[in-house]
C-alpha cells in the first residue's frame, strides 16, 4: 500500500507545471524515504530530477517500493481538477496498475477522487556523478526567468559567464547582442532577493534558450534558484520545494564554434 497526503496540494500542481513541458511521461519511484523522479526529455539534452521527502507529507505510507509510470499529460489534466487550497492524496495498492488522486477541500465539504491508469515505462536511469562545481550562483528565481525570456529574443543560445565580479548572461543574433550583468549583492533586506556567487574558477558555458525557458516553469515553487556550473559539464538549475524537497534540471551545454 502506498499513500501520500499533501496538505499543500498546490505544490503538486506547481511541480506538474514545472515538468510537463519537458517530459511526456515519467516514473515516480516511491519508497519509504519519499518519492523520486528522474527522467530525460526525448532528445536527451536535459534531465529532470525531483525529490519529495516523506517528512514533507503530513501522512506518508509506503509498505514496499513502487514504480508508477505516469503519462504526465493525463496527470496534469487530473491535477487541474484540484483547487489550489485542496489537500491532495496519491494512493495505490501494491502491484496496482492504477493510481488514485483524492482532492479534499479545506473544510472537507467536497471530496473528489480520480483514478488514472499507470503505464509501463522503460526509462534510462542515469548515474549522475558527484561534482564539486566551480561556480555556484544563487539569484531570485523571477529574475532568472526574466533574463531567460528577455535574452531568448536575440538568439537560440544564452552564454552564462561567471567570474568573481558576478555573472553575465549574453545572447547574440540577427538583431544584435544583449548582455545582462548581475553583481553579487552586498546587503539585502530579504534573503530571497540576494544574488550570491561562490566561485572557485571562472566558467563560461553556452546553453539552449529553449530548455532554460522550460526550467523556469518551476519559478512558482521557489523564490530563489541555484545555478551550478563547471567547465564542460552540464548545468544544474535547482529550485527548492519548501521543506519537502527539490527539483533539479540538468542541461547539456552547447559546445564548439
Amino acid at each position: 500500500m502506498f499513500e501520500a497526503r499533501l496538505v499543500q496540494g498546490a505544490l503538486l500542481k506547481k511541480v506538474m507545471e514545472a515538468i510537463k513541458e519537458l517530459l511526456n511521461e515519467a516514473s515516480f519511484d516511491c519508497a519509504h524515504s519519499g518519492i523520486l523522479l528522474q527522467a530525460m526529455d526525448n532528445s536527451h539534452v536535459s534531465l529532470v530530477s525531483l525529490n519529495l521527502r516523506r517528512e514533507g507529507f503530513d501522512k506518508y505510507r509506503c509498505d514496499r517500493n513502487l514504480v508508477m509510470g505516469m503519462n504526465l499529460s493525463s496527470m496534469s489534466k487530473i491535477l487541474k481538477c484540484a483547487s489550489n487550497d485542496d489537500i491532495i492524496t496519491m494512493k495505490a495498492q501494491d502491484n496496482a496498475d492504477t493510481v488514485t488522486f483524492v482532492f479534499e477541500s479545506p473544510k472537507q465539504e467536497k471530496i473528489s477522487d480520480y483514478e488514472m491508469k499507470l503505464t509501463n515505462l522503460d526509462q534510462d536511469h542515469l548515474g549522475i556523478p558527484e561534482t564539486e562545481y566551480s561556480c555556484v550562483i544563487k539569484l531570485p528565481s523571477a529574475e532568472f526567468a526574466r533574463i531567460c525570456r528577455d535574452l531568448s529574443q536575440f538568439g537560440e543560445s544564452i552564454v552564462i559567464s561567471c567570474t568573481k565580479e558576478g555573472v553575465k548572461f549574453s545572447a547574440a543574433g540577427d538583431i544584435g547582442t544583449a548582455n545582462i550583468k548581475l553583481a553579487q549583492t552586498a546587503t539585502v533586506d530579504k534573503e530571497e532577493d540576494a544574488v550570491m556567487v561562490d566561485m572557485q574558477e571562472p566558467v563560461t558555458l553556452t546553453f539552449a534558450c529553449k530548455y532554460l525557458n522550460m526550467f523556469t516553469k518551476a519559478t512558482p515553487l521557489s523564490p530563489q534558484v541555484c545555478l551550478s556550473m563547471s567547465p564542460d559539464v552540464p548545468l544544474v538549475v535547482e529550485y527548492k520545494i519548501e521543506d519537502i524537497g527539490h527539483i533539479r534540471y540538468y542541461l547539456a551545454p552547447r559546445i564548439g564554434d
Binding site: M40, S46, P234, Y250, A252, R254
Partner: peptide, 14 residues
Amino acid sequence: MAKQSSLLNFFNRS
C-alpha cells in the same frame, strides 16, 4: 555555431 551536446556524453546509464 555551437552544437548541442547530449547528456549521455556526461552521465552513464545505470
